[in-house]
Nucleic acid binder design. Structure first.
Lengths: 214, 214
DNA sequence: AATTGTGAAAAGATTCACAGCA
DNA sequence: TGCTGTGAATCTTTTCACAATT
């Protein structure tokens, strides 16, 4: 994880926050808001005002003291830095419930992301179509040329590593993993993992232990 | 975020890792593995061996030097500490693509989680059924008694705050939010946010900037 | 020889504090 | 007065290092 901006490090957490800011800003602009203060943007983005200021400082984007930041200019800057205007192709591997769920979610209004393929190893599923996308056989995956696409792995944990090996062979360098397992990849491949059930278990645990605001 | 174990703090990141360990251990036990070293468990859980050792040390769970940790005992301990054996009720608000996706994913084999209700404000959807769960009207949400349940918010960002206010009124104290917006809640309510599109944008950014392993 | 146990060190992320402007 | 700009301080998380143990 790297990339520097204005001497500070752009960590994945920071990038994720920038993306959230962009969504919030779109909404604010839609509502006719011209400026926003760090306090307000922080509240709308589930962060602190200090962190918002620190982030925008890192971005090199200045506001007006006593007033705040210009919503449209700020959005423009974030879109530019994150490259949000370009369209990315996404392939989803695993057409089980989760895979279909994600695929159907992404086919609708998610700006800049376009699902181009859906793979499954189950021959019974191959050939059918979901939300306009044909399900293809996972067998040939390793022989396809998939550089530049973002891959989503939504298979059972037991086959995730195998799928990832094939994706890597196909040239994929960015993988979003929903299987609750670690994945071994070459150093030039980035994997991010999301564990939906895990998030709920964490909430469950915190509730049991009535996590007070200390 | 709190709760101490053996003097050390159990942060949400740690809890999430414990959950991952549990999934990995289930698989290992299934494969007949009796012991696992921190290096192996780390690899399978997308963490470092050092962190695994540190986590298990925090747990107060000891291994055998030169050998590793006993898989079955360790799983038992984690299940016990995290309370994974109890069944949690989950309600999902928002029966759009994402809400339906999550609901259908959770109705199948996710141990310990049981979807009990699905809400939407769209009258056209209310009454229909998804994976055996009737869609109920979101209007009455604030008047229900929903203490102890885990709530999943899968509405558009614009209505998320309103939904959350109603959930809080109904007694909900744990919310998993998929809307890309910050949510204001009383201090005794915990919110965790997942931004699926955001994860993909982060990958996209890192790929554009060929994030070398520094 | 392999692997845990554990404090200390390092790295990273967030918050503070307050000067400086509009 | 309200809010940004920004380094310093703090807090958190992770890694290191190596003695201890099987």
């Amino acid at each position: 994880m790297s990339e520097r901006l204005r001497g500070r490090r752009l960590s994945t957490a920071t990038i994720a926050r920038f993306h959230t800011y962009s969504r919030v800003l779109e909404r604010l602009i839609n509502d006719g808001r011209r400026t926003v203060s760090s306090v307000q943007l922080g509240r709308l983005s589930a962060t602190s005002a200090a962190l918002v200021r620190s982030d925008l400082f890192t971005l090199g984007f200045g506001g007006t003291r006593g007033v705040g930041y210009e919503t449209d200019k700020l959005l423009e800057r974030i879109v530019d830095v994150l490259g949000l205007e370009r369209v990315r192709e996404v392939v989803v591997v695993g057409a089980g419930r989760l895979g279909l769920a994600i695929a159907s979610y992404l086919t609708q209004g998610v700006r800049g992301l376009k699902i181009t393929a859906l793979y499954d190893i189950d021959p019974a599923k191959v050939g059918s179509e979901v939300a306009g996308i044909a399900i293809r056989s996972g067998d040939g995956l390793g022989r396809e040329a998939l550089a530049d696409v973002l891959a989503v792995v939504a298979t059972p944990a037991s086959s995730a590593q195998h799928v990832v090996d094939q994706l890597v062979a196909a040239g994929v360098r960015s993988i979003l993993n929903f299987a609750p397992t670690g994945l071994a990849v070459p150093p030039d491949v980035t994997v991010r993992s999301v564990d939906l059930a895990g998030e709920l278990y964490v909430l469950s645990f915190l509730q049991d232990h009535h996590d007070g605001p200390t």
